[in-house]
Design a protein around this nucleic acid. Sequence first.
DNA 1: AACATTAACAACCGCCTGTGC
DNA 2: AGCACAGGCGGTTGTTAATGT
Length: 332
Amino acid sequence: MGRAPCCDKAKVKRGPWSPEEDAKLKEYMAKHGTGGNWIALPQKAGLKRCGKSCRLRWLNYLRPNIKHGEFSDDEDRIICSLYANIGSRWSIIAAQLPGRTDNDIKNYWNTKLKKKLIMGSINPDALRKPQQAAHFSSLLHATSLPSSPSTPLSSSPSFTCSSNSYNYTLARSFTEPISFSSSPLSNNSFTTASMLQPQETFVGSMQNYQVKDNLIMFGGEASCSSSDGSWSNQMSHVKEEYEHGDGANNNTGQVGLQNYLHNGVEDGQKLMFSSGVAGHGVLNGWTGKPIGLWGENPLDYSLEEIKQLISTSSCNNFLFDENKTAEKAMYY
DNA sequence: AACATTAACAACCGCCTGTGC
DNA sequence: AGCACAGGCGGTTGTTAATGT
């Protein structure tokens, strides 16, 4: 016996939404919000629709600040880059594209972007790291991050990026992965000062880290723009570390999180730092488990590799694919 | 003009997960 | 601990408009 349906399909309307239904839902949402219960909403709003259908209509179409229409080249690049890194996790990808919904991106990928890539109408150079990223990469390698005397890193960090996202992969056994700032200027924030030159200090909001699957996301507006805000409900062990941390220290949260980063990162878990809105030239960084001995070579997915990914659709998340890693390491 | 095909995207489906009891 | 439920998510299907034959 299967799961009971969420509503009586004989009694609910299906198919495209009429302008009248849209107006009703909009009006109800403006006045009452979801009230924390989508299932009960249609009845209250006077709609003969399934609650799930209302939720979808709202999130994908009626919600304010939804961006419709053509995707920009920057958005293309972000989608390609993220797809190459994390696969078809559309909600995560959508979180990096303010105003876009996961459904929108998924449709765009399936109908246009995939073809664009295969047809070669996307400039391969667009998927490679830009000059700024190269500079950032060199800073990472030049600074003391990997050279903590107490615990050597098990491998060199790797680095990759698209036009405005930076993927930085650290070894597991680091002792100074991130320098948490104790300055009053950076209340509730952290910096990666040990990685960057002062003028490039990377500050992220400590209030905005979010946990999902094997990803821990820190960041500003971009990471808060998930199509439905669901991540905000998914704070777990990291949040706890942040909130309780080391009681003897004023910078409780920072120390707690630092401890977590030192000790608690599990296999396959990655950290994502975002300091602003994707698509506006901001800095994102990924840290996580070692994925190989890259040395000074960037882990950078080329057009050909993304094409290959598309053609082998079973390969959904090749960032974590050890074989792929080894293959690349050998290649470099 | 009529029909077939393709593209685009809205909507649905069913599984999974988190939460409250 | 176990269950039920609501909501989230990704895959898939349905619908419509545009284009080709």
